[in-house]
């Protein structure tokens, strides 16, 4: 055996992403007021919050689109605060943006190639294509079609597939369920679970609390720029405060 149990355990427990006391503000308005979040390696960690809670700002700060005022962001033990987005992406921290943001006038194949922009090795590229087409057969059969001609659910699949093409270690998904039919949402979350099982850490930003907490290993609740609640997914799903905030008042209605 190459690994001792301790090694395997520590490997399993390592933190992939660590946010320490992060502050972000836009033009005088403080959007994030000192949050600390740990994302364990090979876990699905969920960030919940209603509109304006600061979820997207957090994500933008992590992927380098916004410069934080203070605090630190560590990715695999390395500070990436203030790095340019394209450099962060090359480390393996890949962002599936909100609203999918696929390239509508590029073919599906070209969209996927954009994900693998830094992969020059043809053999690796071929393996990546095979992996992605296995997970998303619909993309294989339509590879020559323009991205914009896909349905909403298929576009979300394409956005996820494109992210996988860049061989991520951590995948940040910003509202993958946005604007999708419930059946498609279930499908997307099934795929997210499968990607986690393949060894990719997932940081999930969601408003669809019910579905998200079912697959989350750990979750944070963001309210007005601060973390108000955290815990394992199965605990939060029972928590009164979460129910209060998202499920129309929870038990008090009964």
């Amino acid at each position: 055996m190459a690994h001792t149990w301790e090694q395997i355990l520590t490997e399993h427990k390592t933190t992939m992403l660590q946010i320490e006391d992060l502050h972000v503000s836009y033009g005088g308005i403080r959007a994030i007021k000192g949050i600390s979040i740990d994302v364990g390696s090979r876990e699905i960690v969920c960030l919940l919050g209603s509109n304006g809670a600061g979820k997207s700002t957090t994500v933008r700060a992590i992927s380098g689109l916004e410069t934080p005022q203070s605090g630190n962001i560590l990715f695999a033990g390395k500070s990436i605060k203030g790095w340019a987005p394209h450099k962060i992406q090359r480390l393996g921290l890949v962002h599936v943006p909100e609203g999918r943001k696929i390239f509508a006038n590029l073919t599906i194949r070209e969209n996927l190639l954009m994900g693998a922009y830094h992969t020059r090795d043809k053999v690796v590229l071929r393996q990546l294509f095979e992996r992605v087409y296995d997970t998303f057969p619909i993309l294989a059969s339509r590879s020559g079609q323009l991205g914009g001609t896909l349905s909403g659910g298929e576009q979300q699949m394409l956005a996820i597939a494109r992210a996988i093409m860049s061989r991520p270690r951590l995948l940040i998904m910003d509202e993958p369920s946005l604007g999708l039919a419930p059946m498609i949402v279930a499908n997307v979350f099934e795929i997210i679970k499968r990607i986690r099982d393949e060894g990719v850490t997932i940081f999930l930003i969601e408003q669809n609390v019910n579905v998200a907490l079912k697959i989350a290993d750990y979750a944070f609740l963001l309210e007005n720029g601060v973390v108000s609640l955290e815990g394992p997914g199965y605990e939060l799903i029972e928590d009164e405060r979460v129910k209060q905030a998202y499920m129309g008042g929870g038990r008090s209605n009964n």
Binding site: P85, H86, Q89, P97, K101, F103, E110, M114, Y117, R162
Partner: peptide, 24 residues
């Protein structure tokens, strides 16, 4: 070339292109 695809990606959506690791 892949540079050409990157140009088109920048045209389509600059933010998404940056998220793909392209230095726009």
């Amino acid at each position: 070339s892949s540079y050409g695809r990157a140009m088109k990606a920048v045209r389509e959506d600059e933010m998404a292109a940056e998220a793909m690791g392209i230095n726009a």
